[in-house]
Design a protein around this nucleic acid. Structure first.
Lengths: 126, 126
DNA sequence: CGGCATCCTCGGAGATACTG
DNA sequence: CAGTATCTCCGAGGATGCCG
């Protein structure tokens, strides 16, 4: 990205480092599955299998991959209960909850403009 | 997605239709390049080549593809000036500007939690 | 049950070149 | 300058199977 999105005032020190990090995070987060997972977890605490049911159409593999990534970035917290069978639970962290607020905005936006978009599509496809 | 994100109260009539449309739109929009392009356009009116410079790392092809998609959904408006050489300009529509507000939120979020995320990553990678 | 590894494929995405 | 088309290739992502 052009840098304008992320760099604030900045002493210009290693602005580029921070900026490339920002781009990296943005790429992680600005992806369909990641957003849907965060939205799905919400304020609750869900098991792996519950999440898979919740996030429609996601594969086992994609779910694990994205959960790992989100855990790595500190957006979800993973708790393993050493029972048998194993029980693993996921919940949003504070940064995760903060992110969810903006995702909620995205969802509202979708709902709000659903009609406009649909008709725009019809016009375009002609 | 689990439906809960998009369906409001809903008469249940063709809720599924609206819901699958919402999912489709979400997939279109919740992608790195689309978001970066919308953010790049902002309140301005940019030419194709300006956009390519603005959106760091995007290829000619990806830019056209995404611009078509955004135009189809009515998020950007494409204006062709019949000069020579041709001059094509892109600007956000009302829905596009509304979407940009939430993207701004995403960018702020990234800036705000940059540090937390970086240290979380370091912890995880150990 | 949740996670990881392996295999395989299908299409996303870059490079290149041509038109208006 | 902007857009389209063709070719190619790499890797995202699905399916499957095996561990703890």
């Amino acid at each position: 990205m052009g840098t304008k999105q992320f760099s604030g005032s900045a002493e210009d020190a290693d602005l580029t480092r921070a900026d490339s990090l920002a781009r990296e995070i943005f790429s992680d987060v600005a992806n369909k599955w990641a957003l849907l997972i965060i939205e799905a977890v919400g304020e609750r605490t869900l098991r792996f299998s519950e999440l898979r049911d919740e996030v429609e159409g996601i594969s086992h593999k994609m779910l694990t991959q994205n959960l790992r990534m989100l855990e790595r970035n500190g957006l979800v917290e993973r708790t393993v209960h050493p029972t048998v069978p194993p029980r693993v639970e996921y919940a949003l962290t504070e940064p995760g909850r903060a992110l969810r607020v903006t995702i909620d905005g995205l969802c509202s936006w979708t709902r709000q403009y659903l009609g406009d978009i649909e008709s725009s599509r019809r016009r375009f496809d002609a």
